[in-house]
Nucleic acid binder design. Sequence first.
RNA 1: CCAGUCGGCCGGACAGCCGCUGCCGCACGCGCCGAAAGGCCGCGGGAGAGGAAAGUCCGGGCUCCAUGGAAACACGGUGCCGGGUAAUCCCCGGCGAGGGCGACCUCAGGGAAAGUGCCACAGAAAGCAAACCGCCCCGGCUUCGGCCAGGGUAAGGGUGAAAGGGUGGGGUAAGAGCCCACCGCGUCUCCGGCAACGGCGGCGGCACGGUAAACCCCACCGGGAGCAAAACCGAAUAGGGACAGCGCGGACCAGAACUCCGGUUCGGUUCAGGCCGGUUUCCAGGCCGGCUGUCCGGGUUGGUUGCACAAGGCGUCCGGUGACGGGCGCUCAAGAUGAAUGGCUGUCACGUCCGCGGCUGCGGCCACGGGCCAUACAGAACCCGGCUUACAGGCCGGCUGGCUUC
RNA 2: GGCCCCGUAGCUCAGCUGGAUAGAGCACUCGCCUUCUAAGCGAAUGGUCGCAGGUUCGAAUCCUGCCGGGGUCG
Length: 131
Amino acid sequence: MKTLKKRAEFLAVSKGGRVGRRAFVVQGLKRDGGEEPRIGYTVTKKTGNAVVRSRIKRRLRAAIAALDRQDVPRSADFVLVARHNALTLPFPKLIADLKSGLPQVLDARTPRGPKRPRPTGYDATSRRKQG
RNA sequence: CCAGUCGGCCGGACAGCCGCUGCCGCACGCGCCGAAAGGCCGCGGGAGAGGAAAGUCCGGGCUCCAUGGAAACACGGUGCCGGGUAAUCCCCGGCGAGGGCGACCUCAGGGAAAGUGCCACAGAAAGCAAACCGCCCCGGCUUCGGCCAGGGUAAGGGUGAAAGGGUGGGGUAAGAGCCCACCGCGUCUCCGGCAACGGCGGCGGCACGGUAAACCCCACCGGGAGCAAAACCGAAUAGGGACAGCGCGGACCAGAACUCCGGUUCGGUUCAGGCCGGUUUCCAGGCCGGCUGUCCGGGUUGGUUGCACAAGGCGUCCGGUGACGGGCGCUCAAGAUGAAUGGCUGUCACGUCCGCGGCUGCGGCCACGGGCCAUACAGAACCCGGCUUACAGGCCGGCUGGCUUC
RNA sequence: GGCCCCGUAGCUCAGCUGGAUAGAGCACUCGCCUUCUAAGCGAAUGGUCGCAGGUUCGAAUCCUGCCGGGGUCG
Protein backbone atom coordinates (compact mmCIF):
# COMPACT_ATOMS: atom_id res chain seq x y z
CA MET A 1 0.00 0.00 0.00
CA LYS A 2 1.43 3.32 -1.06
CA THR A 3 1.46 6.21 1.38
CA LEU A 4 0.93 9.92 1.04
CA LYS A 5 4.13 11.84 1.58
CA LYS A 6 3.59 15.51 0.86
CA ARG A 7 1.77 18.18 2.76
CA ALA A 8 -0.05 19.27 -0.41
CA GLU A 9 -1.48 15.77 -0.82
CA PHE A 10 -2.80 15.76 2.73
CA LEU A 11 -4.40 19.16 2.21
CA ALA A 12 -6.06 17.95 -0.99
CA VAL A 13 -7.58 14.91 0.72
CA SER A 14 -8.85 17.04 3.58
CA LYS A 15 -11.14 18.77 1.08
CA GLY A 16 -12.88 15.45 0.39
CA GLY A 17 -15.37 13.43 2.43
CA ARG A 18 -15.02 12.89 6.15
CA VAL A 19 -16.39 10.07 8.33
CA GLY A 20 -15.80 9.57 12.04
CA ARG A 21 -15.30 6.22 13.70
CA ARG A 22 -14.46 5.04 17.22
CA ALA A 23 -10.69 5.24 16.92
CA PHE A 24 -10.10 7.56 13.98
CA VAL A 25 -11.54 9.97 11.41
CA VAL A 26 -11.30 8.98 7.74
CA GLN A 27 -10.85 11.54 5.02
CA GLY A 28 -11.12 10.33 1.42
CA LEU A 29 -11.02 11.74 -2.10
CA LYS A 30 -11.41 10.10 -5.50
CA ARG A 31 -8.41 10.52 -7.70
CA ASP A 32 -8.09 10.51 -11.50
CA GLY A 33 -5.60 8.33 -13.31
CA GLY A 34 -3.93 6.33 -10.56
CA GLU A 35 -5.31 2.96 -9.73
CA GLU A 36 -3.51 1.95 -6.55
CA PRO A 37 -5.16 3.56 -3.48
CA ARG A 38 -2.92 5.57 -1.19
CA ILE A 39 -3.14 6.05 2.59
CA GLY A 40 -1.85 8.85 4.79
CA TYR A 41 -1.64 8.72 8.58
CA THR A 42 -2.00 11.74 10.89
CA VAL A 43 -1.38 11.50 14.63
CA THR A 44 -1.23 14.90 16.23
CA LYS A 45 0.98 15.92 19.09
CA LYS A 46 -2.14 16.37 21.23
CA THR A 47 -2.67 12.59 21.17
CA GLY A 48 0.36 11.73 23.27
CA ASN A 49 4.11 11.52 23.38
CA ALA A 50 6.28 9.96 20.73
CA VAL A 51 5.88 6.42 22.04
CA VAL A 52 2.09 6.62 21.98
CA ARG A 53 1.99 8.28 18.57
CA SER A 54 4.27 5.69 17.01
CA ARG A 55 2.30 2.82 18.49
CA ILE A 56 -1.02 4.22 17.19
CA LYS A 57 0.45 4.68 13.72
CA ARG A 58 1.75 1.11 13.68
CA ARG A 59 -1.60 -0.32 14.73
CA LEU A 60 -3.36 1.62 11.99
CA ARG A 61 -0.80 0.48 9.47
CA ALA A 62 -1.18 -3.13 10.56
CA ALA A 63 -4.96 -2.85 10.31
CA ILE A 64 -4.74 -1.51 6.76
CA ALA A 65 -2.40 -4.37 5.86
CA ALA A 66 -4.89 -6.87 7.27
CA LEU A 67 -7.65 -5.73 4.87
CA ASP A 68 -8.39 -7.57 1.64
CA ARG A 69 -7.75 -5.74 -1.60
CA GLN A 70 -11.45 -5.45 -2.43
CA ASP A 71 -12.13 -3.73 0.90
CA VAL A 72 -10.14 -0.67 -0.19
CA PRO A 73 -11.73 1.35 -3.02
CA ARG A 74 -9.42 1.90 -5.96
CA SER A 75 -8.48 5.25 -7.52
CA ALA A 76 -8.72 7.14 -4.24
CA ASP A 77 -6.61 8.69 -1.49
CA PHE A 78 -7.38 8.33 2.24
CA VAL A 79 -6.10 10.01 5.38
CA LEU A 80 -6.60 8.43 8.79
CA VAL A 81 -6.59 10.98 11.62
CA ALA A 82 -6.07 8.98 14.78
CA ARG A 83 -7.95 9.47 18.01
CA HIS A 84 -6.50 8.54 21.36
CA ASN A 85 -8.45 5.31 21.76
CA ALA A 86 -6.83 3.95 18.61
CA LEU A 87 -4.24 2.79 21.13
CA THR A 88 -6.66 0.63 23.11
CA LEU A 89 -9.50 -0.35 20.76
CA PRO A 90 -9.44 -4.12 20.11
CA PHE A 91 -7.85 -4.99 16.81
CA PRO A 92 -10.88 -6.74 15.13
CA LYS A 93 -13.04 -3.68 15.85
CA LEU A 94 -10.40 -1.48 14.27
CA ILE A 95 -10.52 -3.60 11.10
CA ALA A 96 -14.34 -3.58 11.02
CA ASP A 97 -14.43 0.22 11.28
CA LEU A 98 -11.99 0.51 8.40
CA LYS A 99 -14.08 -1.85 6.24
CA SER A 100 -17.20 0.26 6.70
CA GLY A 101 -15.54 3.68 6.77
CA LEU A 102 -13.40 3.59 3.63
CA PRO A 103 -16.23 3.11 1.10
CA GLN A 104 -18.58 5.43 2.97
CA VAL A 105 -16.22 8.36 2.86
CA LEU A 106 -16.33 8.38 -0.95
CA ASP A 107 -20.15 8.50 -0.98
CA ALA A 108 -21.36 11.82 -2.36
CA ARG A 109 -23.77 12.32 0.56
CA THR A 110 -21.07 12.48 3.24
CA PRO A 111 -20.12 15.96 4.49
CA ARG A 112 -17.18 17.48 2.75
CA GLY A 113 -14.41 19.85 3.58
CA PRO A 114 -12.53 20.50 6.82
CA LYS A 115 -14.41 20.30 10.07
CA ARG A 116 -15.88 23.62 11.13
CA PRO A 117 -16.68 24.65 14.70
CA ARG A 118 -20.34 23.93 15.43
CA PRO A 119 -22.34 27.10 16.28
CA THR A 120 -23.01 27.15 20.01
CA GLY A 121 -26.68 28.00 20.71
CA TYR A 122 -28.18 31.17 19.34
CA ASP A 123 -26.62 34.58 19.56
CA ALA A 124 -27.75 36.17 22.80
CA THR A 125 -26.86 39.71 21.82
CA SER A 126 -29.43 39.88 19.01
CA ARG A 127 -32.40 40.02 21.36
CA ARG A 128 -31.36 42.87 23.57
CA LYS A 129 -34.25 44.84 24.96
CA GLN A 130 -34.53 48.34 23.54
CA GLY A 131 -35.70 51.45 25.34
C1' C B 1 16.81 -8.47 62.51
C1' C B 2 15.48 -3.18 62.10
C1' A B 3 16.70 1.81 60.57
C1' G B 4 19.94 4.60 57.52
C1' U B 5 23.76 6.04 53.98
C1' C B 6 26.86 5.45 49.60
C1' G B 7 28.10 2.92 45.04
C1' G B 8 27.15 -0.48 40.97
C1' C B 9 23.78 -3.46 37.80
C1' C B 10 19.14 -5.19 35.42
C1' G B 11 14.90 -2.98 33.67
C1' G B 12 10.56 -8.97 31.00
C1' A B 13 11.56 -14.46 28.71
C1' C B 14 10.15 -18.21 25.07
C1' A B 15 7.18 -19.81 20.85
C1' G B 16 3.74 -19.38 16.44
C1' C B 17 1.45 -16.60 12.07
C1' C B 18 1.82 -12.06 9.14
C1' G B 19 4.82 -7.60 8.06
C1' C B 20 8.85 -3.19 7.73
C1' U B 21 14.12 -1.08 6.87
C1' G B 22 19.38 -1.53 5.90
C1' C B 23 23.67 -4.98 4.97
C1' C B 24 26.05 -9.41 2.57
C1' G B 25 25.96 -13.27 -1.23
C1' C B 26 23.76 -15.25 -5.76
C1' A B 27 20.95 -13.96 -9.87
C1' C B 28 20.51 -9.48 -13.32
C1' G B 29 15.47 -9.29 -17.93
C1' C B 30 17.77 -4.66 -20.99
C1' G B 31 11.72 -5.14 -17.73
C1' C B 32 9.06 -0.89 -14.86
C1' C B 33 8.80 4.51 -12.71
C1' G B 34 10.97 9.42 -13.64
C1' A B 35 12.21 15.47 -17.45
C1' A B 36 16.91 14.10 -15.62
C1' A B 37 19.78 12.64 -11.69
C1' G B 38 18.48 8.32 -9.85
C1' G B 39 15.36 4.50 -8.01
C1' C B 40 12.26 -0.25 -8.05
C1' C B 41 11.21 -5.63 -8.96
C1' G B 42 13.64 -12.30 -7.51
C1' C B 43 16.01 -16.04 -3.97
C1' G B 44 18.94 -17.09 0.41
C1' G B 45 21.58 -15.56 4.97
C1' G B 46 22.16 -12.53 9.05
C1' A B 47 20.98 -7.73 11.85
C1' G B 48 17.59 -4.06 13.79
C1' A B 49 16.10 1.60 20.04
C1' G B 50 17.81 3.55 25.51
C1' G B 51 19.72 4.04 30.39
C1' A B 52 18.07 7.87 29.96
C1' A B 53 17.50 7.45 22.81
C1' A B 54 14.53 12.96 26.53
C1' G B 55 15.80 18.26 27.96
C1' U B 56 19.30 20.76 24.41
C1' C B 57 22.42 22.84 29.63
C1' C B 58 27.99 22.38 28.66
C1' G B 59 32.42 20.29 25.99
C1' G B 60 34.73 18.14 21.53
C1' G B 61 35.05 15.77 16.51
C1' C B 62 33.26 17.10 11.54
C1' U B 63 31.61 20.91 7.70
C1' C B 64 31.20 25.80 5.81
C1' C B 65 32.13 31.09 6.55
C1' A B 66 38.00 32.78 0.05
C1' U B 67 42.90 31.88 2.62
C1' G B 68 46.79 33.11 6.21
C1' G B 69 49.05 36.00 10.22
C1' A B 70 49.59 39.68 14.34
C1' A B 71 47.91 43.11 18.08
C1' A B 72 44.44 45.82 20.91
C1' C B 73 39.53 46.71 22.71
C1' A B 74 34.96 44.81 23.70
C1' C B 75 31.67 40.60 24.89
C1' G B 76 30.74 35.86 27.20
C1' G B 77 32.16 31.97 30.49
C1' U B 78 34.91 29.70 34.52
C1' G B 79 36.99 30.51 39.53
C1' C B 80 39.82 26.89 47.03
C1' C B 81 44.38 23.54 45.70
C1' G B 82 46.47 19.45 42.94
C1' G B 83 45.48 15.91 39.22
C1' G B 84 42.54 13.25 34.94
C1' U B 85 40.96 14.17 29.89
C1' A B 86 40.48 15.49 22.96
C1' A B 87 37.90 19.11 25.97
C1' U B 88 34.57 21.01 29.71
C1' C B 89 30.61 24.56 33.81
C1' C B 90 32.57 17.33 33.95
C1' C B 91 35.26 13.57 37.02
C1' C B 92 38.93 12.08 41.02
C1' G B 93 41.83 13.14 45.46
C1' G B 94 42.77 16.74 49.18
C1' C B 95 41.67 21.72 52.01
C1' G B 96 38.07 25.08 54.42
C1' A B 97 32.87 26.34 56.29
C1' G B 98 27.96 24.49 57.80
C1' G B 99 24.55 20.23 59.15
C1' G B 100 24.06 15.11 61.20
C1' C B 101 25.22 10.54 67.27
C1' G B 102 27.51 8.39 62.86
C1' A B 103 28.29 6.39 57.84
C1' C B 104 27.74 10.74 55.11
C1' C B 105 25.54 15.19 52.86
C1' U B 106 25.46 20.49 51.26
C1' C B 107 28.20 25.00 49.76
C1' A B 108 32.22 27.67 47.26
C1' G B 109 38.00 31.90 44.21
C1' G B 110 40.69 36.35 46.06
C1' G B 111 40.22 41.76 46.65
C1' A B 112 35.23 45.51 50.76
C1' A B 113 42.89 48.28 53.24
C1' A B 114 42.38 49.68 44.42
C1' G B 115 37.99 52.45 43.41
C1' U B 116 32.46 53.37 42.70
C1' G B 117 27.46 52.16 44.31
C1' C B 118 23.67 50.31 47.83
C1' C B 119 22.13 49.09 53.03
C1' A B 120 14.37 50.51 52.70
C1' C B 121 11.32 50.86 57.42
C1' A B 122 12.69 51.44 62.37
C1' G B 123 16.45 53.82 65.11
C1' A B 124 20.07 59.18 68.24
C1' A B 125 23.39 57.13 64.81
C1' A B 126 24.05 52.48 58.88
C1' G B 127 30.01 53.79 58.01
C1' C B 128 32.53 59.31 59.34
C1' A B 129 32.38 57.59 65.14
C1' A B 130 28.52 59.39 67.22
C1' A B 131 25.08 59.54 71.95
C1' C B 132 18.07 58.94 72.44
C1' C B 133 16.71 56.81 77.26
C1' G B 134 20.38 56.17 80.77
C1' C B 135 25.01 56.07 84.44
C1' C B 136 28.58 59.31 87.01
C1' C B 137 31.23 64.00 88.68
C1' C B 138 31.19 69.24 89.63
C1' G B 139 28.39 73.97 89.99
C1' G B 140 23.74 76.70 90.61
C1' C B 141 18.47 76.77 91.98
C1' U B 142 14.83 74.16 94.92
C1' U B 143 8.26 73.99 96.80
C1' C B 144 13.26 68.57 98.77
C1' G B 145 9.75 65.44 94.25
C1' G B 146 13.60 67.26 91.30
C1' C B 147 15.25 71.07 87.48
C1' C B 148 19.13 73.76 84.67
C1' A B 149 24.24 74.50 82.79
C1' G B 150 29.18 72.25 82.00
C1' G B 151 31.95 67.80 81.65
C1' G B 152 33.14 62.26 81.61
C1' U B 153 31.28 57.61 79.70
C1' A B 154 29.42 53.47 76.42
C1' A B 155 28.34 48.74 81.06
C1' G B 156 22.63 48.52 80.65
C1' G B 157 17.66 49.66 77.82
C1' G B 158 15.48 50.38 73.08
C1' U B 159 15.56 49.91 67.03
C1' G B 160 17.37 46.79 63.40
C1' A B 161 19.51 41.52 59.34
C1' A B 162 23.69 44.24 61.03
C1' A B 163 25.35 49.26 66.35
C1' G B 164 32.82 49.31 65.64
C1' G B 165 35.40 42.13 69.12
C1' G B 166 33.01 38.01 72.90
C1' U B 167 33.01 35.71 78.06
C1' G B 168 34.92 36.17 82.96
C1' G B 169 37.84 38.89 86.48
C1' G B 170 40.41 43.26 88.13
C1' G B 171 39.82 48.38 88.03
C1' U B 172 36.91 53.11 88.37
C1' A B 173 33.11 58.66 90.46
C1' A B 174 30.70 55.83 86.57
C1' G B 175 32.91 53.31 82.77
C1' A B 176 36.03 51.74 78.82
C1' G B 177 41.45 46.45 75.94
C1' C B 178 42.30 50.89 80.77
C1' C B 179 44.77 46.00 82.63
C1' C B 180 44.75 40.38 82.84
C1' A B 181 43.19 35.06 81.27
C1' C B 182 40.77 32.27 77.41
C1' C B 183 38.38 32.51 72.58
C1' G B 184 38.15 35.33 67.99
C1' C B 185 40.79 38.80 64.52
C1' G B 186 45.23 40.83 62.29
C1' U B 187 50.42 40.29 61.69
C1' C B 188 55.60 38.04 62.03
C1' U B 189 59.05 33.95 62.45
C1' C B 190 59.54 28.75 62.28
C1' C B 191 57.71 23.71 61.08
C1' G B 192 54.68 20.09 57.83
C1' G B 193 52.64 20.01 52.82
C1' C B 194 53.84 20.53 45.34
C1' A B 195 49.69 23.67 46.86
C1' A B 196 45.02 25.13 49.05
C1' C B 197 45.88 24.95 54.06
C1' G B 198 47.21 23.27 58.98
C1' G B 199 50.27 23.61 63.62
C1' C B 200 53.70 25.74 67.75
C1' G B 201 55.31 30.36 69.48
C1' G B 202 55.82 35.78 69.65
C1' C B 203 53.65 40.59 68.85
C1' G B 204 49.42 44.06 68.27
C1' G B 205 45.35 45.66 71.89
C1' C B 206 41.00 46.08 67.88
C1' A B 207 42.82 49.47 63.99
C1' C B 208 39.46 46.01 59.40
C1' G B 209 30.51 46.02 59.22
C1' G B 210 27.76 43.56 55.05
C1' U B 211 26.95 43.08 49.78
C1' A B 212 31.24 41.37 44.17
C1' A B 213 24.87 35.04 41.83
C1' A B 214 25.88 44.99 42.19
C1' C B 215 29.61 47.62 38.78
C1' C B 216 34.57 46.39 39.02
C1' C B 217 39.96 44.54 39.73
C1' C B 218 43.01 39.72 39.05
C1' A B 219 43.97 34.88 36.56
C1' C B 220 42.57 31.42 32.78
C1' C B 221 39.55 29.97 28.49
C1' G B 222 36.63 31.19 24.08
C1' G B 223 36.31 33.49 16.09
C1' G B 224 31.04 32.60 14.15
C1' A B 225 27.37 29.32 12.48
C1' G B 226 25.55 24.69 12.45
C1' C B 227 24.33 17.78 9.12
C1' A B 228 17.85 21.83 7.24
C1' A B 229 26.20 22.33 8.02
C1' A B 230 28.36 20.96 3.41
C1' A B 231 29.61 18.45 -1.39
C1' C B 232 27.92 16.27 -5.99
C1' C B 233 24.01 15.22 -9.90
C1' G B 234 20.19 17.61 -11.84
C1' A B 235 13.51 20.21 -15.61
C1' A B 236 10.80 24.96 -16.73
C1' U B 237 10.63 30.28 -15.38
C1' A B 238 12.95 34.45 -13.19
C1' G B 239 17.52 36.17 -11.61
C1' G B 240 23.54 35.41 -11.84
C1' G B 241 28.65 35.19 -14.12
C1' A B 242 32.39 35.45 -18.21
C1' C B 243 33.70 37.34 -22.96
C1' A B 244 32.97 40.82 -27.13
C1' G B 245 31.01 45.48 -28.74
C1' C B 246 28.96 50.33 -27.26
C1' G B 247 31.63 54.07 -23.92
C1' C B 248 27.55 55.55 -19.89
C1' G B 249 28.92 57.05 -13.57
C1' G B 250 32.30 60.07 -10.15
C1' A B 251 36.84 63.12 -9.65
C1' C B 252 40.72 65.86 -12.11
C1' C B 253 43.26 68.74 -16.26
C1' A B 254 50.05 71.19 -19.28
C1' G B 255 44.96 70.08 -23.70
C1' A B 256 41.31 71.30 -28.20
C1' A B 257 36.66 73.35 -30.18
C1' C B 258 32.06 76.14 -29.46
C1' U B 259 29.78 79.89 -26.34
C1' C B 260 24.44 83.79 -24.66
C1' C B 261 30.92 83.30 -20.42
C1' G B 262 26.66 79.99 -16.68
C1' G B 263 28.76 75.94 -19.19
C1' U B 264 28.63 72.06 -23.30
C1' U B 265 31.26 68.65 -26.44
C1' C B 266 35.79 66.09 -27.64
C1' G B 267 40.47 64.23 -25.74
C1' G B 268 43.50 62.51 -21.74
C1' U B 269 44.47 60.74 -16.66
C1' U B 270 42.49 58.26 -12.54
C1' C B 271 39.03 54.86 -9.38
C1' A B 272 39.96 58.47 -4.70
C1' G B 273 35.28 55.40 -2.45
C1' G B 274 32.59 51.14 -0.57
C1' C B 275 32.48 45.81 0.98
C1' C B 276 35.30 41.35 2.80
C1' G B 277 34.32 36.30 9.92
C1' G B 278 32.03 41.38 16.93
C1' U B 279 34.81 46.24 16.41
C1' U B 280 39.38 48.86 15.33
C1' U B 281 44.39 48.93 13.38
C1' C B 282 48.45 46.80 10.35
C1' C B 283 49.87 43.53 6.30
C1' A B 284 49.31 40.25 1.92
C1' G B 285 44.99 39.50 -1.19
C1' G B 286 39.92 39.48 -3.30
C1' C B 287 35.08 41.76 -4.91
C1' C B 288 31.73 45.93 -6.63
C1' G B 289 27.87 50.27 -12.17
C1' G B 290 24.63 50.45 -17.44
C1' C B 291 22.82 48.45 -22.69
C1' U B 292 23.08 44.54 -26.66
C1' G B 293 24.74 39.67 -28.25
C1' U B 294 26.97 34.84 -27.39
C1' C B 295 28.33 31.23 -24.03
C1' C B 296 28.66 29.32 -19.23
C1' G B 297 27.52 28.17 -14.52
C1' G B 298 24.72 28.27 -9.95
C1' G B 299 20.21 26.52 -8.15
C1' U B 300 14.14 25.48 -6.28
C1' U B 301 10.79 20.45 -6.34
C1' G B 302 13.81 15.91 -6.50
C1' G B 303 18.09 12.40 -6.03
C1' U B 304 23.04 10.72 -4.19
C1' U B 305 26.84 11.46 -0.63
C1' G B 306 27.82 13.24 4.22
C1' C B 307 25.97 8.15 7.23
C1' A B 308 28.42 4.69 10.85
C1' C B 309 35.48 1.85 12.19
C1' A B 310 34.39 5.34 16.23
C1' A B 311 38.32 9.52 21.82
C1' G B 312 34.07 2.00 19.48
C1' G B 313 32.60 -2.58 22.50
C1' C B 314 34.03 -6.97 25.58
C1' G B 315 37.68 -9.72 28.39
C1' U B 316 42.30 -9.84 30.89
C1' C B 317 47.07 -8.12 32.98
C1' C B 318 50.07 -3.99 34.79
C1' G B 319 50.70 1.20 37.03
C1' G B 320 47.90 4.67 40.16
C1' U B 321 44.46 6.03 46.80
C1' G B 322 41.27 7.38 42.62
C1' A B 323 39.39 9.72 38.13
C1' C B 324 42.27 7.39 34.52
C1' G B 325 46.43 5.58 31.60
C1' G B 326 49.20 1.58 29.11
C1' G B 327 49.88 -3.59 27.03
C1' C B 328 47.65 -8.05 24.94
C1' G B 329 43.56 -10.89 22.87
C1' C B 330 38.67 -11.11 20.68
C1' U B 331 34.82 -8.55 18.00
C1' C B 332 32.47 -5.51 13.71
C1' A B 333 27.51 -4.35 16.35
C1' A B 334 20.54 -0.04 13.87
C1' G B 335 20.84 3.63 9.92
C1' A B 336 15.05 5.75 8.90
C1' U B 337 13.91 10.69 5.97
C1' G B 338 5.37 11.84 6.22
C1' A B 339 10.65 9.09 9.11
C1' A B 340 11.77 1.42 9.54
C1' U B 341 13.15 -1.37 14.18
C1' G B 342 6.48 -3.83 14.36
C1' G B 343 0.91 -6.12 14.59
C1' C B 344 -1.93 -10.20 16.68
C1' U B 345 -2.01 -14.62 19.79
C1' G B 346 -0.41 -18.37 23.45
C1' U B 347 2.60 -20.10 27.74
C1' C B 348 5.63 -18.63 31.82
C1' A B 349 8.52 -15.68 35.42
C1' C B 350 8.00 -11.33 38.46
C1' G B 351 4.71 -7.82 40.65
C1' U B 352 0.10 -6.38 42.84
C1' C B 353 -5.00 -7.22 44.82
C1' C B 354 -8.73 -10.61 47.07
C1' G B 355 -10.01 -15.20 49.82
C1' C B 356 -8.39 -19.12 53.09
C1' G B 357 -4.71 -21.69 56.18
C1' G B 358 -0.04 -21.94 59.02
C1' C B 359 4.29 -19.54 61.67
C1' U B 360 5.78 -15.11 64.38
C1' G B 361 10.44 -11.52 67.66
C1' C B 362 3.46 -8.60 65.88
C1' G B 363 7.20 -5.31 61.96
C1' G B 364 5.90 -9.33 58.76
C1' C B 365 6.96 -14.31 56.40
C1' C B 366 5.38 -18.95 53.94
C1' A B 367 1.84 -22.21 51.10
C1' C B 368 -2.69 -22.81 47.97
C1' G B 369 -6.65 -20.84 44.65
C1' G B 370 -8.55 -16.79 41.73
C1' G B 371 -8.37 -11.78 39.35
C1' C B 372 -5.16 -7.92 36.33
C1' C B 373 -7.22 -3.84 28.71
C1' A B 374 -0.71 -7.84 33.39
C1' U B 375 4.82 -3.70 33.18
C1' A B 376 7.60 2.10 34.98
C1' C B 377 9.94 6.37 32.39
C1' A B 378 10.05 6.44 27.57
C1' G B 379 11.42 5.90 20.57
C1' A B 380 17.84 6.72 17.52
C1' A B 381 17.72 11.29 13.35
C1' C B 382 25.73 13.35 12.01
C1' C B 383 28.72 11.11 15.97
C1' C B 384 31.01 11.01 20.82
C1' G B 385 32.18 12.71 26.40
C1' G B 386 29.48 14.85 30.52
C1' C B 387 25.41 17.22 33.29
C1' U B 388 20.24 17.62 34.45
C1' U B 389 15.41 15.66 34.54
C1' A B 390 11.70 11.15 34.42
C1' C B 391 11.38 6.03 36.09
C1' A B 392 6.94 0.27 38.19
C1' G B 393 9.80 -3.36 40.14
C1' G B 394 14.15 -6.14 41.31
C1' C B 395 19.44 -7.71 42.36
C1' C B 396 24.53 -7.10 44.41
C1' G B 397 28.24 -4.84 47.47
C1' G B 398 30.73 -1.29 51.10
C1' C B 399 29.82 1.47 55.51
C1' U B 400 27.09 3.62 59.99
C1' G B 401 23.65 3.52 64.27
C1' G B 402 20.53 0.36 67.27
C1' C B 403 18.23 -4.33 69.25
C1' U B 404 18.40 -9.74 70.35
C1' U B 405 21.20 -14.32 71.07
C1' C B 406 25.86 -16.95 71.73
C1' G C 1 16.62 17.68 14.12
C1' G C 2 18.94 22.72 14.97
C1' C C 3 18.30 27.84 16.58
C1' C C 4 15.56 31.92 19.03
C1' C C 5 11.79 34.24 22.16
C1' C C 6 7.97 34.60 25.98
C1' G C 7 5.26 33.17 30.86
C1' U C 8 2.56 39.03 36.16
C1' A C 9 -5.54 39.83 37.98
C1' G C 10 -10.81 36.48 33.90
C1' C C 11 -8.27 39.28 29.12
C1' U C 12 -4.28 42.80 27.08
C1' C C 13 0.07 44.59 29.15
C1' A C 14 3.57 47.92 32.63
C1' G C 15 6.99 47.12 36.67
C1' C C 16 12.67 43.49 36.04
C1' U C 17 18.07 46.83 33.41
C1' G C 18 19.11 49.83 38.66
C1' G C 19 16.24 44.73 44.72
C1' A C 20 12.40 47.30 49.79
C1' U C 21 4.21 49.85 47.56
C1' A C 22 2.51 44.48 42.71
C1' G C 23 0.18 48.61 39.20
C1' A C 24 -2.89 50.48 34.47
C1' G C 25 -6.94 49.70 30.92
C1' C C 26 -11.06 46.42 29.75
C1' A C 27 -14.30 42.79 32.04
C1' C C 28 -17.23 41.26 36.72
C1' U C 29 -20.03 43.16 41.37
C1' C C 30 -22.38 47.25 44.07
C1' G C 31 -24.08 52.33 44.33
C1' C C 32 -25.41 57.24 41.85
C1' C C 33 -27.77 59.26 37.35
C1' U C 34 -32.23 57.57 34.00
C1' U C 35 -39.20 55.85 33.28
C1' C C 36 -35.75 51.46 31.81
C1' U C 37 -31.13 50.26 29.29
C1' A C 38 -26.57 51.98 27.19
C1' A C 39 -23.00 55.73 28.05
C1' G C 40 -21.02 58.59 32.21
C1' C C 41 -19.49 59.12 37.60
C1' G C 42 -17.94 56.70 42.24
C1' A C 43 -16.50 52.44 45.12
C1' A C 44 -15.14 47.52 46.03
C1' U C 45 -13.42 42.65 44.67
C1' G C 46 -9.80 39.98 42.04
C1' G C 47 -2.40 37.93 42.27
C1' U C 48 1.18 30.49 44.34
C1' C C 49 4.31 37.24 39.72
C1' G C 50 4.76 29.38 35.57
C1' C C 51 7.35 25.72 39.37
C1' A C 52 11.50 24.39 42.67
C1' G C 53 16.13 25.42 44.84
C1' G C 54 20.14 29.09 45.79
C1' U C 55 22.59 34.29 46.67
C1' U C 56 20.96 38.30 49.97
C1' C C 57 18.80 41.34 55.91
C1' G C 58 15.28 41.24 51.86
C1' A C 59 13.74 38.20 45.16
C1' A C 60 8.27 39.54 40.37
C1' U C 61 13.43 41.42 39.61
C1' C C 62 19.88 38.29 40.33
C1' C C 63 21.84 32.84 39.50
C1' U C 64 20.76 27.55 38.43
C1' G C 65 17.52 23.55 37.10
C1' C C 66 12.71 22.08 35.49
C1' C C 67 7.45 22.96 33.28
C1' G C 68 4.33 25.21 29.59
C1' G C 69 3.52 28.14 25.12
C1' G C 70 5.11 30.42 20.55
C1' G C 71 8.30 31.64 16.31
C1' U C 72 11.97 30.39 12.64
C1' C C 73 15.39 27.31 9.40
C1' G C 74 18.37 27.27 0.80
